[in-house]
């Protein structure tokens, strides 16, 4: 059976520290757009930590929620793409083929989670910042759409190594950059087709739910709700 990659986000562990956001930038060659462009709504964060205020001072509460591509099994971004740049892989990933993308931005409208980001300009890395670029991840040019890939390059690397070493993948072998960087261990990644994997176990948790479940996208990210003091 092929893998079916998924993630669990434990909102009771997540502290909102934002390390995952920077980790994703570092891993995936996500451009920094600078203040002028950021002010115009062009900042790119494949992963964002949403924060919402509840109540008013002094009974005020804040909640955090890391949101990345949910790799929906019924992804609204896929059928609308005229070029198959946004498409579903055998392993359940919502793949984004930058070279096929012509920049209609339709997929980004259709995505209920607003996690797709458009390259408004060619990215710039004043030298020698270009040395930080990850050679395993392509740099996107102007006019294409990009988004969280579940760090597909890391998945492939581990799969290739395992194949070369003639072994099966173990749970926890694949760690996307955000998962790897999260010191609170709020993010767990793995194979949903393996009922014993940690991510499967967490996805079955009674605390678990999907974001915007009623939109019918069948996301593969499960959010475990933050609990309150007992």
């Amino acid at each position: 059976m092929p893998h079916k990659w998924g993630m669990a986000v434990d909102l009771d562990r997540c502290t909102g520290c934002g390390a995952c956001v920077t980790a994703c930038h570092a891993e995936n060659n996500i451009p920094t757009v600078g203040p002028a462009q950021a002010a115009r709504g062009r900042a790119m964060h494949w992963l964002r930590v949403e924060r919402y205020w509840e109540g008013d001072f002094p009974d005020v509460r804040l909640t955090f929620r890391p949101v990345m591509c949910q790799h929906c099994d019924a992804a609204p971004c896929e059928p609308v793409c005229p070029t198959y740049a946004s498409h579903h892989t055998d392993e359940g990933l919502n793949a984004q083929v930058y070279n096929r993308c012509i920049g209609t931005r339709y997929c980004a409208n259709a995505c209920p989670y607003s996690v797709r980001f458009f390259d408004f300009f060619n990215p710039q890395w004043p030298k020698p910042l270009h040395l930080q670029l990850n050679p395993d991840v392509s740099v996107r040019e102007v006019g294409v759409m990009e988004k969280c890939t579940f760090c597909v390059q890391r998945i492939r690397a581990v799969e290739i190594d395992a194949k070369a070493e003639k072994r099966e993948l173990k749970d926890g072998d694949v760690k996307p950059a955000c998962v790897q960087g999260c010191s609170a261990r709020a993010l767990v990644f793995g194979d949903l087709n393996d009922p014993e994997s940690e991510v499967s176990r967490l996805s079955r948790s009674p605390r678990g739910s999907k974001l915007l479940e009623d939109v019918g996208t069948l996301p593969k990210v499960t959010y475990l709700e933050r609990q309150t003091q007992v």
């Binding site: 934002g18 950021a38 900042a43 964060h45």
Partner: peptide, 10 residues
């Protein structure tokens, strides 16, 4: 620059 463009968590 990554930190300048990182949204402040709060």
């Amino acid at each position: 620059p990554w930190l300048q463009e990182m949204p402040d968590p709060l």
